[in-house]
Amino acid sequence: MNRKPLSLRDYLLMSLIAVVFGIVFLTAVYAGTALTAALTPLGLGVLGYEPFYGIWYSAALVTTYMIRKPVVGIVTEVATALVQILLGNMFGAIVLISAFIQGVGVELAFAATKYEQYTYKVSMLAAVITTVLSFIWTGFRSNYLAMDWRIVLAIFVIRLLSALFFTGFVAKWLCDKLDEAGVLNHNLKASDAVE
C-alpha cells in the first residue's frame, strides 16, 4: 500500500477528472431528463436517471486506479461534489453526503485488497458496494418506503446494471488503456492490473 500523503498533483488530477466526468455526466443528465419526462405520465419517471448513475461512480474508481493511495476515492467524490456545487448543481450541499457515500463504496472495495489489486473483480465489487450504499441513501432521501416495492426493485436493478457497466467495466477498461498508453506513473506495472 502506498502510504505517501496526497500531493498537489494528486489533488489537481482528482479535481480535473471530476470536471471531465461532470461534462460527460451533463450529457447523461439531458438524456435522463428527457427519459424522465417521457416516463412521467406512466408513473415511471423516477427511473429516468437510473441508467446513468454508473457514470457518476466512475470518477472515484478512475482516480483510485490512477493514484493508488488510500482515501483517493472519497476525496475525489467530495471534490467532485464541491466542483458541482460551485458550478450550480441543483441539489447543492446535500450532494456532499451522496458523494461521500459513493466514495466510501469505491474505497471499501479497494481497501479490502489493501490497494494492491486493480482487477475487474475489484472494480465490479466497487460497483456493487457503491450501488448498495447509494441506494440506502437515496432511499432515505426520496422515501422509497412510500413507493410500490416493484418500482423500488426496478430502481435498484437498473442502478446496479448501470454501475456494473459504467463503473465496473468501462471505467476499468479505460484505466487499463491509459496504463498501456504509459501515461500513469504509479508503482505497479500494467501486467499487475490484468487478471
Binding site: T33, T36, A37, L39, T40, P41, L42, G43, L44, G45, V46, G48, S142, A146, M147, D148, R150, I151
Partner: peptide, 14 residues
C-alpha cells in the same frame, strides 16, 4: 420534471 415524476410515481405506485 423531477418533482412531477415523483408525484406520478407516488400517486400511481403508492
Amino acid at each position: 420534471v423531477i418533482s412531477l415524476s415523483y408525484f406520478f410515481t407516488g400517486w400511481l405506485f403508492s
